[in-house]
Amino acid sequence: MGSLVYNTNQPIPIDDRALAHLQLVIYGKLRAHESFPFSWKDEPGVGDGHGSIWISPGVPITFKYAGSREPSVNREWLRVLRDAANQPSGLRLVPEPDGPGR
């Protein structure tokens, strides 16, 4: 279980595979100098809550992985996450679709 740390706030626990896909999408948005909301549901071991943050260029963000191996990339999942990031409601962590790379 990895984590996303935004602006030195409390780490958001996220599965390493999902975190790798979020990292690619978030870096793409920040590279384009775009700000956007990111929302998530807490992992079952953490509780039944949820949260949301506003991600902006220039604010420190860290992706910390628990494992040493880089997960393969599911291009369909990247497409779904990128599409979500471009909606007014923003980026949401959605389940990985079946397909190549899974």
Rank of each mutant, 00 (worst) to 15 (best):
I61W: 09
P37Q: 01
H21A: 07
R82V: 10
E43L: 11
T62S: 09
I53D: 01
A66S: 13
V46N: 06
K64S: 11
F63A: 03
R79P: 08
A20T: 10
I61C: 06
K64V: 12
L30W: 12
L4I: 08
L30D: 07
S56I: 02
E76L: 14
A32M: 14
Q23Y: 15
R79N: 10
P71M: 07
P37F: 03
I14E: 02
F36D: 07
G67Q: 01
R79I: 09
I61N: 03
R69D: 01
P37T: 05
R75I: 13
Q23K: 15
Y27N: 15
L78V: 12
G45S: 15
Q10M: 04
T8E: 08
P13K: 03
G2V: 07
D16K: 01
T62I: 09
P37E: 00
F63N: 05
W40K: 08
G2P: 04
P37G: 02
F63D: 05
S39C: 04
G28F: 12
S68W: 09
A18H: 14
L78F: 13
A20E: 11
V80E: 07
F38E: 01
P13A: 04
I26V: 11
A66G: 12
W40I: 06
W40V: 05
N7T: 05
I12G: 00
V5F: 00
D42N: 11
D16R: 00
G47H: 05
D16E: 00
N9F: 08
E34A: 06
E70D: 15
V59N: 03
G58L: 08
T8S: 09
A32E: 12
W77P: 03
R31K: 15
R75M: 15
V80N: 09
S72Q: 14
G45Q: 15
H21V: 06
I14T: 04
L30G: 08
E70P: 10
